[in-house]
Amino acid sequence: MSLTIDPGIWVAALFTLAIFSFLYKDNPVYKFAEHLLVGVSAGYYLVQYFFSAVYKKLYVPVFINGEYWLIVGGILGIMMFARLSRRSEWVSRYPVAFYVAAWAGYVIPSYIQVRILQQVKSTMFNPFAMSIQEALSATVLLVGVITTLLYFYFSAEHKGGLKHVSRIGITFLMIGFGATFGYNVMGRVSLLIGRFQFLMTDWLGIIQ
């Protein structure tokens, strides 16, 4: 394998190095790359937003499939642009209220079902239907969930029994945050490996 002659890979590699140059210190090459990234990304997104919202979800259903009531969605969308003027800003409250309330409406039953009831149900266990080892783990899980929830219970002062219980809750939280930190390191390193693989394989051709 050898150095590539593909201009696309050369451009990608040079911009990769331009971003890495920030590690030494902030510099004009990095600033140029950073601003170009914002511009190119915004341009890319704008085209996708326009195609998906205006063409795919409005033009095709209304003017080709004849679903005329969907034009109301378009009117609500246009009302959002009233935010551009301070005098007409209030008009945009209608689509905002519509959007937020629609989300609020379906989030209530869904969250109660999936994030609360099913999670509580999965924490319960029958110690007679499992091995001692499993029962011990299930007990630790149950204690952990209850004490973590009690740690976030602020309607009563954390003293006496509640203080001790919430301290157990903190212990579980710290293990949880530690796991998050460990996975965070793992994720960031993986991203770096990805860039190095690109530079060393696709660009320099020094590894297969």
Binding site: Q119, S122, A179, N184, G187
Partner: peptide, 23 residues
């Protein structure tokens, strides 16, 4: 990887019966 650590409750509850975490 960052997201994977939050999937365990769904995995244990059977809501996500299998997942790949990070690289």
């Amino acid at each position: 990887a960052i997201q994977a650590v939050l999937i365990y409750p769904y995995y244990q509850a059977g809501q996500i019966p299998g997942f790949l975490g990070g690289l």
